[in-house]
Amino acid sequence: MNSYLLGTFRAKFPDATLETHAFRGDETVTIKKEALALAAAWLRDDLGFDFLMDLTAVDYLPREPRFELVCHLYSSKHNYRLRLKCPVGAEDPQVDSLTGVWSGANWFEREVYDMFGLKFRGHPDLRRILMYDGFEGYPLRKDYPLKKRQPRIAHRD
């Protein structure tokens, strides 16, 4: 369960690292949200993770902390991948934006905001990206009513 990458990460952020694990070559680090932006910048600059492949979130209702931010990183230099996770509580669903580290985070973060209602501090343009203006609530949250519809124009019959 110990790889060079995970060991290096733990040594660099001993207090912020909550958990690390590796399963069949898939390495995962779970960190505190306060350290997210710092760790991201370090991963990019010092370890060569130059590509943010995906950024999304999971709602683990009724667990607390309720949300988890999930980033998939890739290093084109080393051909290596890392999954970075970060629990986010429901009472303050805010994290630092990663747009300063990878510009590609921009639309991913807008999507997470649109679907889960997580806010990204420092995002240049945090608006809904998929749903329309006037849409209320966050549809991928587990407590969003399954049958709730919000039509933009009146339906017939």
Partner: peptide, 14 residues
């Protein structure tokens, strides 16, 4: 059958 999809276009037009 979800939050985004119109459940048949006959809800909008004949």
């Amino acid at each position: 059958d979800n939050y985004a999809t119109v459940q048949g276009i006959d809800k909008i037009i004949p």
